[in-house]
């Protein structure tokens, strides 16, 4: 678990450093969520929640901003809740579908937080664009998570933990 937290934190920090692949502000791949979802599939919901919370808190310490914590938490917690409630309903081959719903939850949470903080309901117009980006990025990170799940299972069998 500590290893996965470190991996997720590293990915999150690195992703913040590289220029976004699509020139649309606010849209990013969310590569760190690959780890959250894979941890949920291999280790369990609660373990994935712990990893996510640690990443959010440590990540905001690294980034040095406390207002970012609320924003990051809103997305992370909603995404976790959505994925935790859906992961039992889908077979492993459809893990990417869980990932897409998780990404939609993440963006919805951040949008809600943004509207609440700025008191500007007009921001909801940005929702459809966020939906599209969530579906695309969620599908990709979901595929990534499926590969990571397979690798983790193998690693686990070899090490026997």
């Amino acid at each position: 678990m500590a290893l996965l937290t470190a991996v997720e934190l590293t990915i999150w920090v690195l992703e913040g450093q590289i220029p976004p692949p699509i020139p649309v502000p606010g849209v990013k791949l969310g590569l760190a969520s690959v780890v959250t979802l894979a941890a949920m599939a291999v280790l369990g919901r609660r373990e994935a929640g712990c990893i996510l919370l640690l990443r959010v808190i440590l990540g905001c310490l690294f980034a040095g901003s406390f207002s970012a914590i609320i924003f990051s938490l809103a997305g992370g917690v909603l995404s976790w809740a959505v994925m935790a409630s859906l992961i039992g309903l889908f077979p492993e081959k459809l893990l990417w579908v869980v990932s897409v719903f998780g990404a939609i939850g993440h963006n919805a949470g951040q949008l809600l937080a943004a509207v609440a903080v700025t008191k500007t309901p007009g921001l909801f117009w940005y929702g459809p664009a966020l939906l599209t980006s969530a579906i695309v990025t969620g599908a990709f990170t979901g595929l990534g998570a499926m590969y990571l799940v397979r690798a983790l299972r193998k690693y686990r069998e070899r090490r026997g933990f």
Binding site: V24, S65, T118, T120, A129
Partner: peptide
């Protein structure tokens, strides 16, 4: 601290607003 609004750059249409969360 994070200057996300600065990184977002220039906007010229109504598709995406510029948001600076720490400053509401």
């Amino acid at each position: 601290p994070n200057r996300d609004c600065v990184k977002q750059g220039t906007i010229s249409d109504g598709a995406i607003p510029i948001v600076c969360l720490p400053h509401h």
